[in-house]
């Protein structure tokens, strides 16, 4: 259980919080402004938010303003794909994003409410993404079945589950 993680992996933490939250943190070697832009600018999102090798995001709509829509469509180039839709709720430029999203597999999953913070951390940025699912059962389904594609940013360390 307590395997040694590589230096790369140790930059990211993933844990559950309470019954309905999943919290992911990651340090980036860039200013909060750049990391924030990479999370909201469609052209930048299409370069990294791709999941497993071989997948692309041919359609990326990201209207980064309160009430703005988001729609990400992924494809594996072999006729398979799925998409995510969502809405931006609050944006504090370069510091904080609040949005809701759902995956269409093809039926929509329950809304995932996500607050993402970008804070100065040394020379770079600490990103903290806190997801809130409607209930424990939805979080369980998301962790157990909703992420075969590896696209959803919701991962847990068993150690933290066990440590409560």
């Amino acid at each position: 259980m307590n395997r040694t993680e590589s230096a790369v992996m140790s930059r990211m933490t993933l844990k559950t919080e309470g019954d309905t939250h999943v919290v992911v943190t990651r340090h980036f070697a860039a200013q909060p402004e750049a990391v924030y832009r990479a999370h909201t600018d469609p052209q930048l999102l299409q370069r990294w938010l791709l999941g497993p090798e071989g997948w692309t995001m041919p359609v990326c709509v990201s209207e980064a303003r309160p009430g703005g829509m988001m729609r990400y469509e992924w494809s594996n180039g072999k006729g398979e794909g799925f998409h995510l839709t969502g809405e931006y709720l609050e944006l504090e430029p370069y510091r904080r994003i609040v949005h809701v999203e759902r995956m269409h597999l093809p039926d929509p999953t329950p809304d995932n409410h996500i607050e993402t913070l970008f804070e100065p951390d040394g020379d770079g940025t600490l990103m903290t993404m806190r997801m809130t699912l409607p209930d424990a059962e939805t979080r369980r389904q998301m962790l157990a079945t909703g992420m075969e594609q590896g696209m959803e940013a919701s991962y847990v360390r068993l150690e933290s589950l066990i440590a409560g």
């Binding site: 790369v8 992420m147 696209m151 360390r157």
Partner: peptide, 12 residues
């Protein structure tokens, strides 16, 4: 799953 997410962040 962690690996898949980390792959995104390495691209980022």
């Amino acid at each position: 799953l962690r690996g898949a997410l980390e792959k995104n962040y390495e691209r980022l």
